[in-house]
Amino acid sequence: MCKGLFSLLILFLFYTNVQAQSEYNFSEEENINAKIADVQLNTSDGGMMLSNLYNTSPILVALVFSRCTGICSPFLLQLSDNIRTLNSKEKFKVLVVSFDPIDSLSDLEDMDNRLGLNKKGQWTFATTKQIDALNSSVGFRPIWDSLRKQFDHDALLVGINENGYIAKKLTGLRGISDLKMMIQSIHNEFIPSYPLPRKNNLLSCFTYDPATGKRKPSIGLLILVLPVVLTFGLILWLAIRSKKWRRATNNHLAD
């Protein structure tokens, strides 16, 4: 009895854990196609508006802070590695902006030297006094943790096209394929997309699990087969019935 209850409890915990894992966060869809705030930046090349950067070429905006002991360094290092591996022929720049108000430009330059990111001059490091406006325009919400003296935040990369519109957002450490799609997006290339199944969408053709990326046939495809089955059934029924009709006709003729 106790063993059974224990098994049920384990199963329940496992199920809720799976459920939690498969929940999809829609933050990447937030503010897509909205214009990024045209804030004043402080860079090593002097003060400039953000629009000065995206007007010359599309940009990838990475939001970090120099005191970060968490995701920031791995995030920037992986981004740098992916850009190098991808070796895209498309023209774009990477803008790293600190969202920590106490960061100075030299703090960011130290970070760059430490990580060795800007070898080809493709990267720009900047601080801004209008960080709240910038954060709000891209849907980024860092939370200050006074105990750890750290920001609790996502690793967010925002793709901006030449008109200053947010073309794509990537949260977390992402692979090369996602970066490639982002670069295509900021160059206004068509990226296929398909609405995810919703609760009120009962007859979708496929189910898609964003956690695993797997796509499975769903009940919608059966609906496509239904008319064939119904017609086949109708014809079969008529064929069976028609034997009687023909027999009746023949008997009638014989009489």
């Binding site: 398909y194 609405p195 919703r198 009120n200 969408n201 009962l202 007859l203 979708s204 053709c205 496929f206 919608g220 495809l221 609906i223 496509l224 239904l226 008319p227 119904l230 017609t231």
Partner: peptide, 27 residues
């Protein structure tokens, strides 16, 4: 025409459900 019956039934279901039921575009 049987396909049309199913198609129209799904269309009416969405139209009159007031958003409670949405069809799959691919289907």
């Amino acid at each position: 025409l049987i396909v049309a019956v199913i198609l129209l039934a799904l269309t009416f279901a969405e139209y009159y459900s007031g958003g409670a039921f949405v069809n799959d575009s691919l289907l």
